[in-house]
Structures are given as structure tokens and as C-alpha cells.
């Protein structure tokens, strides 16, 4: 499976048509919710059976984004990575995607440890119902994104509450993102985006 996330920044007047156009291309698409950080205005997520299906579909996706007069698109193509589905068919939940770039000097040496700790988050934070952590195959936008960390929650409260407040997040995982911590490996420029697609995308 090949997956594509596009976080598109576009004028408000263009967003409705852009969302419809991306849905017409078999993507899940929705306005990005308030509280995002560099998360774009419209989030879209596509799943392809294989790389050739992705290559065939990509020009139309790019054309739809260009037609909206997009000022920015942060995107990443990624495979299955590591994932789990605790709530299959979660259609009315909230999807959250994080694009990150592990580009600090010690990143390569520490990536396995970082990834192993990341995928423990759902164990300690059960509000994360479905999730995937994957390395980017290709990416673009502000930075060459190296990883995609996406989750589905039953509602926005799961993201804003337990995910942000649990100490496994701020007292364990965040040190990889924190320039004040010696373990810092992730560029502080992130894309933190979330949307209600009205359809299950992770399970």
C-alpha cells in the first residue's frame, strides 16, 4: 500500500472546490481544524494499491491543487510502516497527521530508538484508536519530511486532552523534538494537522 498526505494552503474561497476535487480523486479530504500548526487549510489523504497506481493518480492530484491556486502544499508519500487498528471503521472520528523531518546531526544514529519509542504512544495513550508511523518515500513542501505519524481519535478531545497531556508525550517522546534536550533529532518545523474526514482512513 502507498499512502499520500497533502496539506494544502489555499485562499478560503478556493477550499470548498479543492476539497470536492480531491474527494473526486478518491481521497479523503476535509478542512483542517483550528489549532493546527503549519497544517494547511485542506488536508487530503489517499491510499493506493501500489506505486504504479500512485504514479498514475498523482498528476490529477497536483492539477487539482494547482487549480485552487494553492500557496503551499506539504506532502509525503509513505508505505505501511508500523500500524495498529483498535477501532476499525472509525468514520466519525478525528484524523491527525504529523509530518516531521528528523534532520539533526545525530538523527541517523538514533532513528531506531526514536521510532521504537514513538510506536509505544498508543499503549500509554489509549485515546489513540488507530495509528501508523512510517518513513517517507518521497516528500515535499517546507522540508524534506522523513516521517509521517498519524492517528485517529474518537473525537477532538482525544487529541487535545490525553494525547497532549499524557506524560509519555511531554516527558518522554517530546525530548526528540526539543532543542533543549540532548536527544533532540527532529527539526522544529513540523506540520501538525487534523481534520474530520467523515470516513475511516486508518482502519
Amino acid at each position: 500500500m502507498f499512502n499520500l498526505i497533502c496539506l494544502v494552503s489555499a485562499d478560503e474561497a478556493a477550499r470548498t472546490d479543492l476539497t470536492a476535487a480531491l474527494k473526486a480523486l478518491n481521497g479523503a479530504a476535509a478542512p483542517v481544524m483550528e489549532g493546527n500548526f503549519n497544517g494547511g487549510d485542506v488536508a487530503a489523504r489517499f491510499a493506493f494499491a501500489d506505486e504504479s497506481a500512485y504514479r498514475a493518480a498523482r498528476p490529477a492530484i497536483d492539477a487539482a491543487i494547482a487549480a485552487a491556486g494553492a500557496v503551499q502544499c506539504n506532502w509525503a508519500l509513505f508505505g505501511n510502516g508500523q500500524s495498529a487498528v483498535g477501532a476499525p471503521g472509525l468514520a466519525d472520528g478525528v484524523w491527525r497527521g504529523l509530518l516531521l523531518c528528523a534532520d539533526r546531526p545525530q538523527a541517523t544514529a538514533r532513528l531506531a530508538e526514536f521510532e521504537a519509542e514513538m510506536v509505544l504512544m498508543p499503549k500509554y495513550i489509549p485515546a489513540i484508536r488507530n495509528w501508523r508511523l512510517a518513513s517517507a518515500i518521497e516528500s515535499g513542501g517546507d522540508l524534506p519530511w522523513t516521517h509521517v505519524w498519524e492517528q485517529e481519535y474518537a473525537d477532538i478531545g482525544g487529541l487535545m486532552g490525553p494525547y497532549m497531556l499524557h506524560p509519555y508525550h511531554w516527558a518522554v517522546i517530546d525530548r526528540w523534538f526539543d532543542p533543549e534536550c540532548p536527544d533532540w533529532i527532529v527539526n522544529t518545523r513540523l506540520c501538525h494537522s487534523f481534520a474530520a474526514f467523515g470516513a475511516p482512513v486508518l482502519g
Binding site: 506524560p167 511531554w170 516527558a171 517530546d174 525530548r175 523534538f177 526539543d178 532543542p179 533543549e180 534536550c181 540532548p182 522544529t188
Partner: peptide, 28 residues
């Protein structure tokens, strides 16, 4: 955390202090 993360002076401080430090850790 959010304030320090996007303040270049914080990262600059730790770089300036590095020659005085053998090793360090930060715990929460």
C-alpha cells in the same frame, strides 16, 4: 516548551555552553 523551542537564543545558549559541559541530560 513552546516558547523555548522557537527562541533561537535558547539553542544559542546551549551551543555557547557546550565547551563547558562534559555531558548533560534533562529530565521531567
Amino acid at each position: 516548551a513552546v516558547q523555548s523551542r522557537y527562541d533561537p537564543a535558547v539553542e544559542a545558549f546551549w551551543a555557547e555552553a557546550a565547551p563547558l559541559i562534559a555531558s548533560r541530560a534533562r529530565y521531567f
